[in-house]
């Protein structure tokens, strides 16, 4: 057996092409991320942020709160289909001024969509939504049949 000098470049070239193209894609993402090029809508980063929610149940309604800092209310759509609540929208990046340079970008932009199945039926016509401090509040009143009922039982 003879000794062969290890050539790291040869090992790289032996990689299957899909691994290399994945590496290229990562390089591209890395590049666009650090150079603030968020106009590329094909990038995995732009369409992949999930706004956090809190959902609480009260006696007569549900309250869904979603963190949407900097999102305009015109850019949010709320729909209710059967028992599924869907909130979708887009967080747009403010127009950057000319001649400016980003030192750091940690915020995410782009479209989002989340759906939730509520544990009881709600009155779709009475759903109320409002924004406060960058948090979307959606109040969904329970349908009559879903409300807790108090029945007086007469004891004879």
């Amino acid at each position: 057996m003879s000794l062969v000098r290890w050539n790291p470049a040869r090992d790289l070239s032996a990689l299957p092409s899909d691994v290399l193209s994945m590496r290229k894609e990562f390089d591209r993402l890395f590049d666009s991320f650090f150079h603030g090029d968020t106009t590329d809508t094909t990038s995995a980063f732009t369409s992949a942020w999930i706004p956090a929610v809190d959902i609480a149940e009260r006696e007569n309604d549900f309250v869904v709160k979603m963190e949407l800092p900097g999102v305009a209310k015109e850019d949010v759509r709320i729909t209710m289909q059967e028992d599924i609540l869907t909130i979708r929208g887009e967080k747009k990046q403010e127009k950057e001024s000319k001649g400016s340079e980003f030192h750091r970008i940690e915020r995410s932009f782009g479209s989002f969509q989340r759906s939730f199945t509520l544990p009881a039926s709600v009155k779709a016509g009475d759903i109320d939504a409002s924004f406060s401090d960058g948090v979307l509040h959606v109040t969904l009143p329970k349908a009559e049949e879903a409300r807790p009922k108090q029945i007086d039982v007469k004891v004879k």
């Binding site: 992949a48 942020w49 999930i50 706004p51 956090a52 963190e67 950057e96 001024s97 001649g99 400016s100 340079e101 980003f102 030192h103 750091r104 970008i105 940690e106 915020r107 995410s108």
Partner: peptide, 17 residues
């Protein structure tokens, strides 16, 4: 995809002109 609940962390952008 990453879950964004960031108030404990407060993500920020820094822009210089």
């Amino acid at each position: 995809a990453r879950l964004e609940s960031l108030s404990a962390y407060a993500p920020l952008d820094i822009e210089e002109n």
